[in-house]
């Protein structure tokens, strides 16, 4: 069943101490690939059947009002099969 995915990230200019902590932990474990890390949130939303355009529009609205805080965060909505 298809799911609606909402991904929320802090805006690039907002300090992300959690991401920084992850970035500094990686090399301690021998992982040297990361130049930087930013941490975000992912919401997986199930609806009955395949998501309709109307439902997606509602999810957009929910993402803007509840799931993200537009002052500090951005979001994207997508469908995952």
């Amino acid at each position: 069943m298809a799911k609606i995915i909402v991904e929320v990230m802090l805006k690039p200019e907002i300090l992300d101490p959690q991401g920084q902590a992850v970035a500094s932990a990686l090399p301690r474990l021998g992982f040297t690939f990361a130049k930087s890390v930013r941490q975000g949130k992912r919401f997986e939303i199930e609806v009955a059947g395949d998501p309709t355009p109307a439902q997606l529009a509602e999810v957009e609205k929910a993402a803007e009002t509840l799931l993200s805080n537009p002052v500090i965060e951005t979001y994207i909505v997508k469908i995952e099969k």
Binding site: L10, P17, I72
Partner: peptide, 17 residues
Amino acid sequence: LCESHLLPGALTRNSNL
């Protein structure tokens, strides 16, 4: 108050975590 937009800005994780 910030989430309600009665005040501007937002409170985020302390920089030292």
